[in-house]
């Protein structure tokens, strides 16, 4: 790992970038640069090899068929798993979150193996699709303010013993298990169902990833005016009875 460059890898924008997931990449990149860091961003298409030397990997959401194709290619490539073994920070959303787990149900209705980087198992829910604004409390050990996001999925994700829930929903469905959990994480790998994109509404998550990647406890402050205004508006919108 180089001292001076933060290597940011965006995994498979051709398959997993359906819900404005580029926004997470842009926010991490912007906030790192605002701290004076050099950022080398690599967008890796699904016919290219995943570099194993990145510091932060972002995996987005996608439709059902691209999700299966992405899982097949990531398993075959092996690069993301090797990067995780090197201690890289990985943040995943929705379809990407399911892929990082042990298995999920693919577009053909069959169980598809994931990468097993996060101790979760996903299946397709039988109830209504979860769509709408979400408000949740992030695991206090992560020291982050409340989570605001937009969910749009039909997945149900159960967390195993070696992962922890990323957040507990106050409003919304989250993991869809009915137990109030939202997302999952371990030391270096994170998953969430939140769109929005989630970093635009929760820039503290972007900062957390940068801190973990750099192994520092704090970052210099940046201008938060518009993020704060958006957060306040969306939190109020989630709290307003429909």
């Amino acid at each position: 790992m180089s001292e001076s460059v933060l290597r940011l890898v965006w995994v498979y924008p051709d398959l997993l970038s359906t819900y404005g997931d580029q926004g997470n990449v842009l926010v991490v990149e912007r906030r790192a640069r605002q701290r004076g860091l050099n950022v080398a961003r690599v967008d890796v298409r699904s016919d290219q090899q995943i570099p194993t030397s990145g510091d932060i990997y972002l995996v987005g959401g996608g439709e059902d068929r691209p999700q299966r194709l992405a899982a097949e290619r990531l398993r075959r490539d092996g690069g993301l798993s090797r990067a995780a073994g090197n201690g890289a920070i990985i943040f995943s959303v929705c379809a990407g979150y399911q892929i990082l787990g042990h298995e999920f149900v693919n577009d053909l209705g069959r169980r598809e193996p994931g990468l097993g980087l996060l101790d979760v198992v996903s299946e397709r829910g039988t109830g209504e699709r979860c769509v709408g604004d979400v408000l949740a409390d992030i695991d206090p050990r992560l020291g982050l303010p409340e989570l605001t996001g937009f969910e749009n999925h039909q997945g149900v994700t159960r967390i195993g013993p070696s992962a922890k829930p990323f957040a507990r929903v106050r409003i919304g469905k989250g993991n869809g298990t009915g137990d109030g959990t939202e997302g999952a994480y371990n030391e270096t790998v994170f998953g969430t169902y939140m769109h929005g994109p989630v970093m635009a509404r929760n820039p503290a998550i972007a900062d957390l990833l940068i801190k973990l990647a750099l192994d520092v406890n704090a970052l210099p402050p940046v201008e938060e005016t518009w993020y704060e205004a958006l957060r306040a508006e969306r939190i109020a919108a989630a709290e307003r009875p429909a």
Partner: peptide, 9 residues
Amino acid sequence: GTDTSWLWD
């Protein structure tokens, strides 16, 4: 559509 995430595309 009530999801604004497309703005980032």
